[in-house]
Simulated assay, not measured.
Amino acid sequence: MGLGSRLGQLIELLVAALVLAMIAGQLLGQPAVVGYVETGSMAPTLAPGDGFVAVPAALAGPIEEGDVVTFRAEQLHGGGLTTHRVVGETERGYVTRGDANPFTDQDGVEPPVKDDQIVAVAWRPGGEVFVLPGIGAAVTGVRAALEGGQTMLAQFLGTRAVLGTQGFAYLLFAVTGAYYVVSTWRDDGAGRDRTRERDAGVDPRTITVVGTLAVVLVVTAAMVGPSGAQRIDVVSAEFESPNPGVIERGTTGTVNYTVTNDAAVPAVVYLESNDGVAADPSTTTVSARTERTVVLAITAPGETGHYRYYLTERRYLAVLPTPLIDALYRLHPWLPVAVIDAVLGGVVYLALGAALGSERARSRSRDRSSWLRRLRSRVP
């Protein structure tokens, strides 16, 4: 294979990885490597459809005025992800505004943004946002087509198993597997010259990489999707109340918090807070498809009123020894995710590589026996 062919394959893999990363970010509820905006609120910095390099908040360091951040809004856009610039800071949180908006978000219905709500920070080399023009439009179209296909298939099959992130992985495996089987069957019986077909077809290595990325996407979704900042509402009152959400001002009360694990494997969950919320226990292991109750200790402010607190939940699939997960977590909260993705992705990559081989799907010679030929020879 020539240098040009190898370069072309590398570009294909990079484009596939980029698109999958952006789609994954939308499915997981936070940008993955690259984010993009859908409205004109950040013009002229970011036009609708423009992308940006999204640095995870845990890696970005302290938030400063002028940073463009992606946060989980409470009121804006129905409570979804919003990308706006930090224009100030108060004791209650950050003040944000779209570059094209005349008023801040806090002049409207959105409360000040807290650290636990921020999921990513736009990369600003030299002080300006690094813009990827129009890349979001392509991802939106791809995602819409995928979701439309999933919906139609779900209606046809009468099942919701093909919907969502996990359904996307099922479909990807089904399509790549079917393509490989059909191509091998056809080429084993076609008798084409091997030299003419050497460069035809899809490289199984591409299928292996894409399939591995799909599995990593599902695994990451199982850990990152349920994680993040969880809002807890508390009322500081002048009197004691049997209502667990009402705490006498200046005193410490307790609130029950339920940790649910819908995954098919146990999960190690860490609970942390920048608002002074103390969880007991702060680390817990939740069995597959079960839940566990954790007690939160919250001190009500001296002034009466409604207050909101945030508890950050970080969870990891217990496919590694718990002491190892704990050691990685102490170094950095994203390290366990990276290592678990690498381990499971590596296993899948080796398994798919062994099953598909390294030659292109159409470069099977007539004198090379395959399991499909042996199977077909036994069929009357």
Rank of each mutant, 00 (worst) to 15 (best):
I340S: 12
T260Q: 10
V277Y: 01
A263P: 09
P323W: 02
W334D: 15
V265R: 00
T285V: 15
T293W: 02
N261Q: 12
T293L: 09
S273A: 11
R330Y: 06
N243I: 11
L311M: 07
R289E: 15
D280L: 02
S287W: 01
S241M: 11
Y310V: 08
N274I: 07
A263E: 11
I340G: 10
V268E: 12
V343M: 09
A237W: 05
P321W: 03
E272L: 05
F239E: 13
Y316P: 08
A318K: 00
I325K: 00
D275S: 13
T251Q: 09
V259M: 09
S236H: 02
T254M: 06
V339P: 08
A267Q: 09
S236D: 12
L324Y: 00
D262W: 06
A237V: 01
P323T: 06
G250N: 10
T293F: 05
T304S: 10
A300L: 05
L331S: 14
R249L: 14
T290W: 00
N243K: 00
L328A: 09
V339L: 10
L320S: 08
T299V: 05
A278M: 06
E313Y: 04
G250Y: 09
N256V: 12
H332A: 12
E238A: 15
V265S: 11
P323F: 05
L324C: 09
P336N: 06
P321L: 02
G245I: 04
T322E: 13
V295H: 01
T251A: 15
P242F: 01
V337K: 02
N256G: 15
E291Q: 13
P244C: 11
W334G: 14
I325C: 08
A342M: 11
A263K: 00
A300G: 11
P244H: 03
L328V: 03
T283Y: 01
G253V: 10
P244V: 05
R330H: 13
R315E: 14
V246M: 11
P281D: 10
V319A: 14
G305A: 13
V337D: 07
R308N: 13
A318N: 07
S282A: 14
D326L: 04
F239G: 14
E313R: 07
V235Q: 07
D326H: 07
R308T: 15
T252L: 08
A297Q: 13
D275V: 04
L320H: 02
T252C: 13
D341M: 10
Y270C: 08
G250C: 12
N274A: 15
L317P: 07
A288I: 04
D275F: 01
D262A: 14
T322D: 11
R315S: 15
V235R: 03
Y316K: 03
Y257L: 03
S273P: 07
L320V: 06
W334E: 12
F239P: 13
D275M: 04
A264L: 13
V319K: 00
A300Y: 00
W334Q: 10
A279V: 03
A264Y: 06
V319H: 05
P323E: 08
V255M: 06
E238R: 00
T293R: 04
T254A: 14
V294W: 02
Y329E: 13
F239A: 14
T283H: 02
E272R: 04
A267F: 03
S273E: 09
A279M: 02
G305M: 10
R330K: 10
T260A: 14
V337S: 07
V265A: 15
Y310A: 15
D262P: 11
A297V: 05
T284S: 08
E240P: 05
A267V: 10
T299C: 06
T258L: 12
L317N: 09
